[in-house]
């Protein structure tokens, strides 16, 4: 279990992590979601005692990180897969890690086997692809057979096969009752792996919810209708107890997935429809709306036409989408 209470990190005037309080529980994959620059990596570095918090406190199984005897046997973390000395072999890299925490050397071969790097165990790390480096980083997290695992953007730069492998690994680790905490800036990725979600934006906690609740709350459907017979349709809808809202260009929108009913209603009243379509907001869009106000780097220029919904929110969402689309390595 990882417990954060009031965790805050300031760099001068800038607040990178702002009063974060949440608990990461065992037995599930907890997704740590936020746009680039939201403070995910800073939070993870503070969990590991690498960065000193300005205020607040992190506990690993009730203890501060530096109080853990042989910390690798409590928590394994992968922050940056490329942070390996290129001149050292995969095996030597894991060996020094094992020795530093009193982990028996045979674990090195076990974890190399687990991640599928046995064949390149004696090859220097500088020749490794990003995928191989990620596997080596994951081997390092598993070395001490820890109850808690933490991964920072583990699927970045991986091929589909590697992504699939990491997803199933995280799920099986959680199924063994371990605490799995994984960060991402992609909602779609989290939707596939996480059971629980912690969303942050500009260092602040935006949501701490189960994935199921997040889906139920955010996966809205709306029916979009265009008709030359607007008034008659509104009357018919009103008669059926359905409330319609005006969207742009005379388009009507109705909350919920009621396309069949509306089609039948229009046929009954012989009203011509030019469009009758269902729009579902994806989880990605829900995430973008949630973090729209807190995206650090907004794209310049006019936002693209809003897909639907209130003008302001849609515009902010458009900007957010662009900003998230301009992803690169998080600093």
């Amino acid at each position: 279990m990882i417990e954060l209470s009031g965790l805050t990190k300031r760099y001068g005037e800038k607040v990178a992590v702002d009063d974060l309080t949440f608990t990461v529980r065992p037995g599930v994959v907890t997704g740590f979601l936020g746009p680039n620059g939201a403070g995910k990596s800073t939070t993870m570095r503070m969990i590991l005692g690498l960065d000193h918090p300005t205020a607040g406190d992190v506990r690993i199984d009730g203890r501060q990180y530096h109080e853990l005897p042989d910390p690798l046997t409590y928590i394994g973390a992968l922050l940056d897969a490329k942070a390996v000395h290129g001149g050292r072999t995969a095996r030597s890299h894991l060996l020094w890690l094992a020795q530093s925490n009193g982990i028996p050397a045979h674990r090195v071969d076990t974890v190399l086997e687990t991640v599928g790097l046995t064949a390149v165990a004696r090859k220097k790390a500088k020749g490794f692809s990003l995928g191989m480096s990620q596997r080596l980083g994951i081997a390092a997290t598993l070395l001490g057979d820890p109850r808690i695992l933490m991964f920072d953007e583990p699927v970045n730069g991986l091929d589909p096969e590697g992504i699939h492998w990491i997803r199933s690994l995280m799920k099986s680790l959680a199924a063994e009752g371990r605490t799995v905490f994984v960060s991402s800036h992609l909602m779609s990725e989290m939707a596939l792996t996480a059971d629980h979600l912690i969303v942050i934006g500009q260092g602040r906690l935006l949501a701490d919810t189960s994935m199921a609740d997040f889906v139920a709350d955010n996966a809205h459907a709306r029916v979009r209708i265009r008709t030359p017979d607007r008034e008659r349709l509104l009357d018919a809808l009103h008669g059926a107890g359905i409330t319609a809202q005006d969207a742009e260009d005379g388009v009507l929108e109705i909350e919920g997935d009621a396309a069949e009913r509306i089609g039948e209603l229009a046929a009954e009243h012989r009203i011509v429809l030019h469009e009758l379509s269902v729009r579902r907001s994806s989880l990605e869009e829900a995430f973008m709306r949630l973090t729209a106000g807190s995206v650090e780097y907004h794209a310049q220029g006019a936002p693209p036409a809003p897909p639907w919904g209130a003008e302001g929110a849609a515009a902010a969402f458009g900007a957010g989408k662009q900003a998230v689309a301009r992803t690169s390595a998080e600093g």
């Binding site: 690798l72 973390a77 942070a83 290129g86």
Partner: peptide, 18 residues
């Protein structure tokens, strides 16, 4: 300094926090 130039210092200090 190879600890710093490779970024390995974080792995090292996570393994040995003292």
């Amino acid at each position: 300094s190879s600890e710093y130039s490779t970024g390995m210092i974080r792995t090292s200090l996570a393994a040995v926090p003292r």
